[in-house]
């Protein structure tokens, strides 16, 4: 069984935790995020016929008062960027975070999850921006914590990218 460290990062309140809570094994409470700034979960996926344990480091969301601790990111094999589709600024944060993470860890597989896809009428993300990211080779998933849409696919895709590496 292969185990890989995977970080989940994004702006504050993009729904990272609720996004994965239905799909991962978790033993620690939400309090960890606000105290230690990280919460560890586990997600097992089968990619290319191989089981991988993704050790998910759910990092506290970034806002104007708190930055993501880059020391938590070190040692990751991949990362998930999470943005909130109803708050355009969060995508910029995600892009900024991607840059900072890559500066810290070098090139790693990652995926961008744009959450709250169920709230289509409140969607205010610039589609062109998404497209341009897509053109740059970003794996982008429109997910919904509420319906669970695309969450499994996102994990699976990330798992495959890790295997392919």
């Amino acid at each position: 069984m292969i185990q890989k460290k995977v970080c989940m990062i994004g702006a504050f309140a993009v729904g990272k935790t609720s996004l994965v809570s239905r799909f991962v094994k978790s033993i620690f409470s939400e309090k960890y995020l606000t105290t230690v700034g990280v919460k560890i979960d586990k997600k097992t996926v089968t990619a290319r016929g191989q089981e991988i344990n993704l050790i998910l480091w759910d990092l506290a969301g970034e806002d104007e008062f708190m930055q993501v601790r880059m020391s938590y990111v070190r040692g990751s094999s991949a990362y998930l960027l999470v943005a909130d589709g109803t708050r355009g600024g969060t995508l910029d944060t995600a892009i900024d975070l991607q840059r900072r993470v890559e500066a810290e860890t070098g090139k790693l597989p990652f995926a961008l999850l744009i959450n709250k896809a169920d709230l289509a009428e409140e969607w205010e993300t610039d589609e062109r921006k998404i497209e341009s990211l897509s053109e740059r080779g970003w794996a982008i998933f429109r997910t919904s914590a509420k319906t669970g849409a695309s969450v499994e696919e996102a994990f699976l895709a990330l798992g495959e990218r890790i295997i392919d590496l």
Partner: peptide, 17 residues
């Protein structure tokens, strides 16, 4: 009893913290 994978991760996180 606790998932040792997660405990390991958290131990590391606490050290970093």
């Amino acid at each position: 009893m606790l998932d040792s994978d997660l405990v390991s991760g958290m131990l590391t996180a606490i050290q970093d913290f």
